[in-house]
Nucleic acid binder design. Structure first.
Lengths: 350, 350
DNA sequence: AGCCGCGATGTGACCGGTCACATCGACTCC
DNA sequence: GGAGTCGATGTGACCGGTCACATCGCGGCT
């Protein structure tokens, strides 16, 4: 790729074009020569500067088209001091919430002509966090979106040096003690709605299987608790599960063993799947014997058997909002909403 | 970020360090001054060149540590001619197979110190493909992995100029008429195994719900067909579905309406979910009345009710193999394997 | 008429790495 | 003992954009 620049050697427009049509990939100076302007004017056109006469802009655009010019992102990043792109830091790319945020970021970034990078932090270990922060400390990294739904993401957010332009997608309420722009879906009220929905069906109380959370009590959990207290219902002990199906299944088994359990609010849909399985194995029907509610509304939830009652979380919009916050003004997000389907029913027992 | 270089102004090691400890982010020339070597030697250390004496290397490393030096990826990409990273081109980031490949690429790339970019092609429209190819035509893009499971990805692969270093993750068998390195999971035999498994359970024949495929007949489909022919069973017409649950559900309804259907091989697990739902709505039990088999083995499949018999596809390994192919030698991939669970059973009807 | 202001454009240095080639010293070989 | 060789290191140009600042031309104002 080491080549010689034609600048200063071209005698005129004709020469410039023939040189540009050679093997070398054209650069702004070639475009400038063909259009009969300076390289700086070409740069201005590339950056949509308003200080270019329409006629000149047209000339430059035609030259770019003729030469099949493609801007070099690396050179731009170097000159600019930082890349014109967004790096998404996440602890996972496959789980529904995380993947959806990534999807939203990509959509929004692509529309604005920004590149998208992905960096996974596998755990909250000091070493992992340090390596990730080091990676992001390169000033040419550009803007960053940290998906801080869990300790790994939160750890990166806390350790990030001040100079890095960042927005975090967090759990509802944000992260305590972090002075960074944070955006989140507030499902607290929806969790309360779900709990009230179950109580309204005649359940004496509602149990909760919690998924990992950075805060001591997630919004899902506090919405649930408040609705129970408000209704004067007993607040059962929270059962905790991890992200994996196995631990959710184990949590489900514990609840299935207790005959007084008739309603369960699960931390997410994946958890609900495993809990439902555990209930099935214990011979308890859903929703005949036990009602369950999930969180997220994964694409297949409506096609479960029975179809899952859950809270719809628009993580894609969350991702888009993060990009908006990084490049301008973040729009307000719609609040998550309970979607009632078939996995919840009235208590049938005497 | 516009700053002045200290090169040529530093009088000695002491000066160099104090200058470097100033506000400016250090560059290799600062590290060189502190270590008492040339900037080129620092560059060699960064690139693990064997031509550096261990003692010298040690000196440079200490200087980097002391100055908290972070290499600038943009500058490196510019000098090198291309970025030291991998861009994943995919039509989706949320569907299981696509997300898994991305995960695998990220894992492998991170280990090698490569950056990972994501670019979504939403459709196979000329405009979308053109924009994506243009994006990738920037020489500073670096290496590319195209996830070509569908027409959109395949379109990009076909339109990509020759100079771009690329590897494609494709359907089994690769893409006809494409002269590019292609890597894939060959599930043909597993599809045949699944079909034989069902026939062995006493089913007269097996129906197939196909998901979108770039080839006229996917490996899943041909493995299925061959196993049927081999056993002398009738080959029913293939029912096609899209990626969305709705179309899979519709396909399921058509099959559920036919009382002779007792075994269905679904194009993937998501499809199986919707098909199972359609069977349920028609009052047909799984696996009592109808046996179903999926493809992929999504994380929750073992926790379905009934647990899904499916073919395990290691897409993460596929992603890792793509990176390996781009940076060295691609390892052989394990063949997909049928995992028998609860959704398949013997025919009980008289 | 002459001066000023301002929009449009041009000039040259600069971002922070890498590359090609020069240099230097020790060691081998005849 | 002098020339040749080779490994380790240094020097300066270069990658392709952007930035700060200079310049140019033209209309309005006194």
């Amino acid at each position: 790729m080491r080549t010689t620049s034609a600048v200063g050697q071209t005698g005129g427009v004709g020469d410039a074009e023939s040189a540009a049509e050679g093997r070398r990939t054209p650069q702004i100076r070639d475009v400038a020569a063909v259009a009969g302007v300076s390289h700086q004017t070409v740069s201005r056109v590339l950056n949509n500067s308003p200080k270019v006469r329409p006629a000149t802009r047209q000339l430059v655009m035609e030259a770019m088209e003729r030469l099949q010019y493609r801007p070099n992102r690396a050179a731009r990043a170097l000159g600019l001091g930082r890349a014109n792109g967004i790096t998404v830091v996440t602890s996972n790319t496959m789980l529904y919430g995380y993947a959806s945020v990534l999807q939203g970021v990509e959509e929004a970034a692509r529309v604005q002509g920004l590149t998208v990078g992905v960096r996974v932090v596998e755990s909250e270990s000091t070493e992992e966090v340090r390596a990730t922060v080091e990676y992001l400390s390169d000033p040419s990294t550009g803007r960053v979106v940290v998906v801080a739904f869990d300790p790994a993401g939160a750890g990166v957010l806390r350790a990030l040096p001040g100079g890095v332009p960042v927005v975090a997608a967090t759990e509802a309420g944000g992260l305590a003690g972090v002075e960074r722009p944070m955006i989140f879906l507030d499902e607290r009220e929806a969790a309360a709605d779900a709990t009230r929905h179950l109580l309204g069906l005649g359940h004496v109380t509602v149990h909760h299987v919690a998924i990992p959370s950075e805060a001591p009590a997630s919004a899902r959990q506090s919405g649930w608790r408040d609705a129970l207290l408000e209704a004067g219902a007993a607040v059962p002990e929270v059962v905790s599960a991890g992200w994996d199906a196995r631990s959710a299944h184990e949590a489900g088994r514990r609840l299935a063993a207790d005959p007084t359990v008739t309603a369960i609010l699960c931390g997410n849909d994946d958890t609900a799947l495993a809990v439902r399985r555990a209930l099935y194995e214990a011979g308890r029907d859903v929703p005949g014997d036990v009602s369950i509610v999930g969180f997220d509304d994964v694409p297949g939830a409506a096609y479960w058997t029975p179809a899952l009652t859950t809270v719809r979380m628009d993580f894609v919009a969350l991702g888009r909002a993060c990009v908006a916050a990084l490049t301008g003004e973040a729009p307000p997000l719609d609040a998550p909403r309970l979607v009632v389907r078939e996995s919840t029913a009235s208590v049938t027992k005497p």
